[in-house]
């Protein structure tokens, strides 16, 4: 097993403290070291005040989202050597208020997500004999969403509009609209048919790239727009 010293330039900030700055740490890594493990090593061996968030260590819980070398990633599945850079820059996700070091306040995220309402877990997805339900395009499900906020961090429009609903909640909304299961989806459609709803999106599709879970939120936003366009035409012709 090869080992190498890798430099980590880590974003540091404490509420009420000095302005944010990057602090450099050196960590001995091998080919299995993930960015999350390296950060935990820093916390254990070098600076116990480094704050980060994680839980599952296997891309399921969505809590370890951060920016690694400027890209949105789940730190638990990014191997340090695979990044191929002598210095690894680690920063908190963008577009949510930073609380401390690498941790952002997720309240605005959940606030949006809860408004969309996502009550579904579809067991049939796991059954081989399951057929795609009538009216569905595919089983590209939003239930895949692990609520990590990476899409929100990557979106350039979230970076300018603090009230934009954002890709995750819009994708969740589409799931309800796509398959309402007896719910009235009209209030949700009204919610997203707004200036800070799905018309705010400028089709940069960075959310699709950032999503570690195959949700493709950008595609879902366009599906919502198609639905709303149809609705507008129907209203225009009085139907």
């Amino acid at each position: 097993m090869t080992e190498r010293d890798i430099e980590f330039k880590v974003f540091r900030y404490k509420q009420g403290g000095a302005a944010p700055a990057h602090q450099t740490f050196t960590v001995r890594c091998d080919e299995n070291t993930t960015v999350l493990v390296a950060l935990q090593d820093i916390r254990r061996d070098q600076d116990g005040t480094l704050i980060l968030r994680h839980s599952c260590h296997h891309a399921s819980c969505g809590t370890c989202g951060m920016r690694i070398n400027g890209r949105e990633e789940l730190a638990c599945v990014v191997k340090v050597f695979e990044l191929g850079t002598p210095t690894v820059v680690v920063e908190p996700m963008r577009n949510m208020p930073v609380i401390s070091d690498l941790v952002v306040d997720m309240e605005p995220f959940y606030d949006r997500f809860n408004a969309a309402g996502m009550p579904f877990i579809r067991e049939s997805e796991y059954l081989e004999e399951a057929e795609v339900a009538e009216g569905l395009e595919t089983y590209m499900r939003c239930e895949n969403c692990i609520e990590c906020n990476l899409c929100v961090s990557a979106c350039p429009i979230m970076g300018t509009d603090p009230t934009y609903i954002g890709p995750a909640a819009l994708a969740a909304t589409w799931r309800v609209v796509e398959e309402p299961r007896g719910l009235d989806s009209r209030p949700l459609l009204d919610w997203v048919d707004s200036q800070n709803g799905c018309w705010r999106c400028h089709v940069a599709y960075e959310c699709n790239e950032a999503c570690p879970s195959g949700v493709l939120p950008g595609d879902k936003i366009m599906s919502l727009r198609r639905e709303l366009t149809k609705r507008k035409f129907r209203r225009l012709f009085g139907r």
Binding site: P20, P108, I165
Partner: peptide, 16 residues
Amino acid sequence: IQPTTDPVRPKAPLRS
């Protein structure tokens, strides 16, 4: 919905 305003990292449209 809660705004995503961050006093520590103000929005920077051009960079975004």
